[in-house]
């Protein structure tokens, strides 16, 4: 079993694979800085998200780490009443419509999806 060694180990490597990972990461630190939760509280949500992904068959070799991070962020944001599930789903659909309603090459604004 050397599966974790498939990941780059010598080079420092890119910190984030995609911009959404960086944003999800930054949102947690920003919320923590604003006092929305303590760091041990956050760690417990992250641990729970990792365990839940493993239970659903995620091999958890490090490449899905920010997916766990995002799931934990959604969970703690709801638990702390920073946002609600309905609001999140609605907003996600608005963004999707905004993309579909925006001509290619133009900046996508949320208002285009309302």
């Amino acid at each position: 079993m050397t599966d974790f060694l498939l990941q780059p180990k010598n080079a420092d490597g890119p910190v984030f694979k995609a911009p959404w990972e960086a944003t999800a990461f930054g949102l947690v630190l920003a919320l923590h800085k604003a006092g929305a939760f303590t760091w041990p509280e956050w760690a417990s949500y992250l641990t729970a998200a990792i365990e839940s992904a493993q239970a659903q068959g995620d091999a958890d070799i490090g490449d899905t780490y920010y997916e766990h991070w995002l799931a934990a962020l959604e969970a703690i944001a709801q638990e702390k009443k920073l946002t609600g599930i309905n609001e999140l789903v609605l907003r996600k659909d608005q963004w999707k419509s905004a993309y579909l309603n925006t001509p290619h090459g133009q900046a996508v604004e949320l208002s285009a999806g309302v």
């Binding site: 944003t23 999800a24 949102l27 995002l70 962020l73 959604e74 946002t83 999140l88 907003r91 996600k92």
Partner: peptide, 9 residues
């Protein structure tokens, strides 16, 4: 999902 969270927060 990240865009939804970010814009709401």
């Amino acid at each position: 999902r990240v865009k939804a969270l970010e814009s709401l927060l």
